[in-house]
């Protein structure tokens, strides 16, 4: 009995540590006063002032555009990379390829941003492209960052799949392209969705890499949040954080439920 109690205590304290700070943000977003020290009443005024701020709305739109493009491209390239890693057997330079794909997982963001900016500046000098840093460079940088995550997720899914179904289809005369679209793709689809969501969330979250490669016209939402955090607490940021947390939580939980319900079918 006491072991159960200890276990409950540990879990309770652990989840309190994980969630109390976030709940704090949400609670104070409804405080009418600007200051944390006094609770003057319940109010939506910070939400209203947030949603009527043109700079924040513009940045949100930029961020969503960049994240959508980056996640979609990243899923395409990452899936191909995962298939190469998983279904092509051993080939010369495979270790190098796998390390290069996985490198952005471990390289500090500051270095990714700095080195990509240096690449863009060098490319511009040599080829005249990209002729200035902006949305395109941020999308490229985010694709590079997120390919690694997508590849790992799709790769682990491929690893646990039954290879014989694909082989049977090939034996029965289906072309490799057809096998991919009719058999492999539906089976790895949950992993692709998960990879897309993760890539989207990572792109929407990134401030360091965008800080290096974003031009003046492509200020993303995290960059605005970051510069306002330097000045400390602001109830507008509380409101923004609460909205973001709600959207992401609902998105992740519904994706999880969809995938959880798919699971039994995949087992057959």
């Amino acid at each position: 009995m006491s072991r159960v109690r200890v276990s409950l205590l540990v879990l309770g304290l652990g989840y309190l540590f994980l969630y109390a700070p976030l709940i704090c943000i949400a609670v104070y977003s409804f405080n009418e006063s600007r200051f944390v020290s006094s609770w003057t009443g319940f109010s939506f005024k910070w939400y209203i002032s947030l949603l009527s701020d043109p700079i924040i709305l513009q940045a949100t739109w930029t961020s969503i555009k960049i994240a959508t493009m980056a996640a979609t491209m990243s899923v395409c390239i990452g899936t191909i990379a995962a298939i190469i890693m998983n279904r092509f057997g051993r080939f010369r330079g495979k270790t190098f390829f796998v390390s290069a794909i996985a490198a952005p997982l471990v390289i500090p963001e500051v270095i990714i941003g700095l080195s990509l900016l240096m690449l863009f500046v060098g490319m511009e000098k040599l080829f005249g492209w990209p002729n200035r840093i902006g949305n395109t460079t941020v999308v490229i940088a985010h694709i590079t960052l997120t390919i690694a995550y997508v590849t790992m997720i799709v790769q682990s899914r491929l690893h646990y799949l039954d290879h014989s179904v694909e082989e049977a289809a090939l034996d029965l005369g289906a072309s490799p392209i057809k096998v991919f679209f009719v058999i492999t793709l539906p089976m790895i689809f949950p992993a692709i969705i998960l990879g897309w969501l993760l890539a989207f969330a990572l792109s929407l979250d990134d401030v360091v890499i965008a800080g290096f490669v974003a031009g003046p016209g492509s200020t993303t939402l995290p960059m605005i949040v970051f510069s306002s955090l330097r000045f400390g607490i602001s109830p507008q940021i509380n409101a923004l954080a609460t909205i973001l947390m709600t959207v992401l939580t609902v998105g992740v939980i519904s994706a999880a439920i969809v995938m959880y319900n798919r699971k039994p079918q995949d087992g057959n």
């Binding site: 976030l22 704090c24 943000i25 995290p222 955090l229 509380n238 973001l244 992740v252």
Partner: peptide
């Protein structure tokens, strides 16, 4: 529940601690 906070923006998680720890914080 362990992974869920990871999906919310990392800036928000840092902001949560600014709110708790700053001189005029919680």
């Amino acid at each position: 529940l362990v992974i869920l906070p990871f999906w919310t923006s990392s800036l928000i998680r840092v902001y949560a601690w600014i709110m708790l720890l700053s001189p005029c914080g919680v």
